[in-house]
């Protein structure tokens, strides 16, 4: 995108912001949901993250915002939001209504299975959940995860192995 597409302050134009939303909102939502466990709060985190991307983009106007940077902002925003609202949250035992995306017409049985899987995920610590979602759902590389979580590469790998092992153990106990 050429510089004529940017506003006087050099911030990304609305068009670019919309593109960021289109490309990354889903991944930001997943990270947020992994931390806050609440669809409405996850929505707030997505909006807040996009506003931060608008105001504090780490790259020159017109350049693509790195996904890892955006997800790091999302995670920090979610943790911060959760801290301020922790007293109000009672920890929903099931996935929020609306979660499940395009497959909202799932059967009751299917929905219950998702709720149970999510409940097992909640038994893991936040780090482990985020690692699993970033790797297994978003398909991030180890390098990208390391950049997102500010961790050394080897730490990402070993923690991910342990996180997946912990989830497998939970699944085994559940079955």
């Amino acid at each position: 995108m050429s510089s004529r597409h940017h506003d006087a302050d050099g911030r990304p134009p609305e068009e670019q912001l919309r593109r960021v939303v289109e490309q990354h909102a889903a991944a930001v939502y997943r990270v947020a949901l992994t931390v806050v466990h609440d669809a409405a709060l996850a929505d707030d985190v997505v909006q807040e993250t996009m506003l931060k991307a608008w105001r504090h983009s780490p790259v020159a106007p017109g350049e693509a915002i790195p996904k890892a940077w955006l997800l790091k902002v999302a995670r920090n925003t979610a943790i911060s939001l959760l801290r301020t609202r922790r007293e109000d949250l009672h920890g929903p035992e099931t996935l929020p209504e609306g979660a499940g995306g395009p497959e909202t017409t799932r059967t009751v049985e299917g929905r219950a299975q998702l709720d149970e899987l999510w409940e097992l995920m909640r038994h893991l610590d936040e780090d482990a959940r985020t690692l699993i979602v970033l790797k297994e759902v978003d398909g991030l590389s180890y390098d990208e995860i390391a950049a997102t979580l500010d961790l050394p590469l080897s730490t990402v790998k070993t923690r991910l192995f342990r996180a997946r092992k912990a989830l497998k153990d939970e699944l085994k106990d559940w079955n």
Binding site: V21, E22, A25, A26, Y29, R30, L33, T34, A39, A42, D43, V46, L95, G98, A99, G100, G101, P102, E103, T104, R106, Q113, L114, L117, W118, M121, I132, V133, E136, V137
Partner: peptide
């Protein structure tokens, strides 16, 4: 199942 469990709502964008 994980992908479905954390999928965003259709109208997220």
């Amino acid at each position: 199942d994980l992908q479905t469990a954390v999928a965003p709502p259709d109208d997220l964008h």
